[in-house]
Design a protein around this nucleic acid. Structure first.
Lengths: 108, 108
DNA sequence: ACAAACCATAACCAAACGGTTATGGTTTGT
DNA sequence: ACAAACCATAACCGTTTGGTTATGGTTTGT
């Protein structure tokens, strides 16, 4: 099995700027490269390159609309990392701690 | 909050060789550098350096015993990554998919 | 006592990385 | 029609990274 994508996902999220972009897209939804550039604190080409890396990992999708390109997260792409943690990382006790948090969020 | 360790954890696990070492230690328990070197397919100094990076992220601990050093995983150190996934990654719908897997594994 | 085993560190190297500025292609507004 | 806005790509650059070989310090076995 050993999804070749797992590598891309782990690599993509290793960089803090890339994580910040992903986090921003998660919190505030779809955004243009321009908006992300203002947020990220680096140049526009740098943001474009980061988005390319995130795209390679399928962590984001893009949608062109005229002269602007909107990016949004594709959270399913985190599956390899989640699976990896299920397997090698988290033990049952931790899992259940997380489950409690999840349930708390469901019925506040 | 923003644990500075999260960076180290994400970075450490970005490299496939390092992930392989961590996986090996998780599956087969504590091992010497020599054993890990045979497994990893790179030179012994390379393994030592990888172990240093994993140590920096607190993903492994070492225990000296005579001339050999035994390494073992410290899975708690994965907490920042688990937290991150809880927060930015998986939403509760996905969580339930995972939960099913967890339950399947619990009672086979 | 001595040779061999185990490991970490140093020194070095090519390649990858993350950033920059420059440029060009579309698209939009006037 | 034209200038400006938006984005991607190219070209470039210093630093980091992942690997190597060389070396030296402990520890073990004989």
């Amino acid at each position: 099995m050993k999804s070749a994508n797992a590598n891309y996902v782990f690599r993509a999220l290793a960089d803090p700027t890339r994580r910040a972009i992903f986090e921003e897209l998660t919190r505030h939804g779809e955004q243009t490269v321009h908006a992300l550039t203002r947020y990220a604190g680096v140049s526009q080409p740098a943001v474009s390159k980061h988005l390319t890396v995130l795209k390679r990992a399928k962590l984001v999708r893009h949608r062109r609309d005229g002269r602007e390109t909107h990016y949004r997260v594709q959270p399913d792409a985190l599956a390899p990392m989640v699976d990896w943690l299920n397997y090698y990382g988290a033990f049952w006790r931790d899992r259940f701690d997380q489950l409690e948090k999840v349930l708390e969020r469901m019925e506040p």
